[in-house]
Amino acid sequence: MVNAPSPATTERAQSQRSAGPVAGRRGGTRHRRHQTVVACLFLAPTLLFFAVFLILPLGFALLLSMSHWAGFDLGGIRPVGLDNFTRLFADGSTFLVPVLTHTLLFALGTVVLALTGSVLVATCIDRLRFQGMWRTVYFLPIVTTVVAVGNVWKYMYEPGGLVNGALNTLGLGSVAFLQDPDTALPSVVVVQAWASFGSAILVLTAGLKSVPASYYEAAALDGAGPVVVFRDITLPLLRPCLLFVCITQFLTGLQSFALIIVMTKGGPGDATDVAALEMYQQAFSYGDWGTASAAAFVLFVVVLMVTLAQLWIFRRKGEDA
């Protein structure tokens, strides 16, 4: 049963049936109507929530993105059309460069680091002993609050912290990781990659397990070296998993700003300012709710395009197979 009949058709069906012979079926219709009532009860909390926290907010955000509003009194909302959007993309606006470019760099950097690292570890961890233990260890950052991750790394990046301590031991000079505009963004990217590493490893090890051992044995009989095996067997068979990790991590990277709030608040200057953070600060620090909502929608469109690209690529992969 794909589409249950609407109440109106049920009504009609029932009146037709009451004229006709099939008396036993009338109970079925009553049962169905009873199920509709019960379903409404079961779904009531969810539907109420959807109305208040899903549909209303979307409308509200859309309204705000086309208004000027300094907060407080709802009566002060003044519609301005697409003004907020044109200002975001006007000359001299920092939104496109550097904020959006930072966002893309942040997401891209995270993906590249997390992916290379996790491919390396996942291929090595495959069929190793104590897998459960390694999994637990690699997963610790994922269940840890961003406040702990951010603060620990922030402290580790300090002149008297662990990273500089290690550099000094190796005879290298200290680096002002988070204070130097040139190193601040890469430093935060490293932390984000560190924090998202575990889930990538999880997906990739699951993918590696599905590669039949006979492939490796055949390759070994043919005398293929490890690099060749990795390039010609592991990597192609792992491609769906790689793609999945790549795209989900990219999406997360585009949206996340909690780590940046904790570690740098977008500084020094605007060296680590990303789009979601810009939205947050426009609204809650500068009280420019219209611009903030417009920025949110622009970022939403970027995220949506990435999501659609993801669906498109996966569908094409499905046709290949």
């Binding site: 049963m1 794909v2 589409n3 249950a4 009949p5 609407s6 109440p7 169905r32 199920q35 509709t36 019960v38 379903a39 409404c40 079961f42 779904l43 959807f50 899903l54 907010p57 979307l58 955000a61 999406l251 949206q255 700003f257 979601a276 939205m279 947050y280 949110a296 929608f297 970022l299 939403f300 995220v303 949506l304 999501t307």
Partner: peptide, 23 residues
């Protein structure tokens, strides 16, 4: 349970999962 609009609702649940939280 069978009720009118069930599939629509399920699709709504699925599609709204795509909305990013910052919005």
């Amino acid at each position: 349970l069978r009720f009118p609009g069930r599939n629509f609702l399920f699709r709504l649940v699925l599609s709204t999962m795509m909305f990013p939280p910052f919005l």
